[in-house]
Amino acid sequence: MSSKIALPISKFVTSVKNIQAGAIYSRDWAPLHSDQDWAINKGNLPNIIMNNYTLNGLVIKYVTDLYGDATRIGKVSFKIKKPICPNETLEFHGYVISEDKVSDELSFLNINLDIKISDQIVSSAKIIAGVNLTEKKINSPWKIDSKKWKSYIDEVTTDKS
């Protein structure tokens, strides 16, 4: 498969509460993610901003929501281009760039994702995800031991570099 395939768009509305909770429950104590007074008056920011872990969590959620609970994420890389503040609607625009079938029941999808606010890209991500695309889905990608799994990721990553 060589042409890119557009995936359904998903949305997530940010709030002070979910940005703070994402930071606190990822044990990220930096005040720019949870202290509005600090962010605005000392951090020279418009408000608190979403941390890396929360953004990564949303990236992973986008893929597992689309491909099912058993989807196993192998690699995520992302860049943050603009800070993400409360009361914004994030739009997730994903594209499958390639599919590598490594066994009868396991395919690795290379997915590119743009995260937009009002048509402006605020972050971009690349994801490598293992999925069982067969109808019966008997064997979950999670059943693969970590050494074999790592070798698959290396193989798929090398193919794309």
Partner: peptide, 21 residues
């Protein structure tokens, strides 16, 4: 954390579903 990002994947929440994977 999953609650903050509204991630309902049962492998984080539901033992009986998680054991399948």
């Amino acid at each position: 954390f999953c609650s903050a990002i509204e991630d309902s994947n049962p492998i984080y929440w539901n033992e009986s579903e998680a054991i399948k994977h």
